[in-house]
Amino acid sequence: MSDAYRLHSVAFTYPLASFPAIDHLSLSIPEGRTTALLGPNGAGKSTLMDILLRWKKPDSGTVLLFGKPLEQYSKIELGQSVALVPQEESSRFAFNVLEYVLFGRSPYLHQLATPSAEDIKLSIEAIREVGLGQCVNRSVTTLSGGEYQLLLLARALAQGARLLLLDEPTSSLDPGNTAMVVRILKKLASRGITLFFTTHDPSIAAELAQHVAMLRDSTLLYSGETAEALTPELLSELYHTPMQTFTHAGRLLVGRK
C-alpha cells in the first residue's frame, strides 16, 4: 500500500520558542484509509497539520505527498490534492450554501475567472453528498454547528481532493450531530478518499479510523493499526493519566479510569 504522506525527521520550532513544536518526527499516512491523530493539548497536532498543509515550512526534514516532495507542488496542484476542513470557521457575510461551497472550486479557476456551469454542478453534487440538499439556498449564517461542519465537508469535496485534513471534526458537536458527521465521513472513506483527522476523543478514532498516530511531547509516540494502538497502556502513556477501554456491541469505547 502506498502512502499519502511520508514524513522523515521533520522538525519545526516557532520563532522565539525555546523548544521545538515538532521534533524529528517520522510518520507515514497510508493512502485510501482513515488515520486519526491523537495527542494531549500542546503535543504539536496543529503544527503538524499546518506542515501537512504547507502553511508552515519545517526547519528540517522531508515531507512527501503522494511520493512527491511537498515543496514541489504548485499552489493549484496542492489545492487540488489536499483539502482542509477547519475546526472553527464562521462567515460574517451571508453567503448562501452553494456560493460558499463554490469557494472549493478555486484551485480549478483562473485568478480572474468566475465559476462555470460545471463548477456549479459539482458543488451541488457535493452539497447533496453531505446531506445538505435541502439547504442549497440557505444563508450560511443560519446553519447549526453540525450543518456548518457538513458545509465545510461539502466545500472540501467540491475541491475534488484525494485527501482531506480535518481539524477536530466532531469536537464542538452534540451526539446527534456527531453521529451525522461520522456517518458522512464513513461514506467518504468508503469512496476511497484518504482522511486524516485530529481528535481528543479516542472513541471517535476507534469508530472511524483504521490507523492511529499518537503524538506526545512534539514527537511520535506510536503509529499503527487502530486495534493495536488503542490499548489502555498506550493511551495512559499518551495522556499521562490512567485510561481504560471497553468493547460493547463490537465497538471500542475509551474512557478515563
Binding site: L53, W55, Q80, A83, L84, P86
Partner: peptide, 23 residues
C-alpha cells in the same frame, strides 16, 4: 471588477484561503 469572485475567497481566514490555493 475583474477580481470580483476572488474577493469572496479572501474573506476567509488566511489558512483556509491558503488551503484552497490562494496566496
Amino acid at each position: 471588477a475583474a477580481s470580483r469572485w476572488r474577493i469572496n475567497l479572501l474573506s476567509l481566514d488566511d489558512r483556509t484561503a491558503h488551503s484552497i490555493g490562494l496566496s
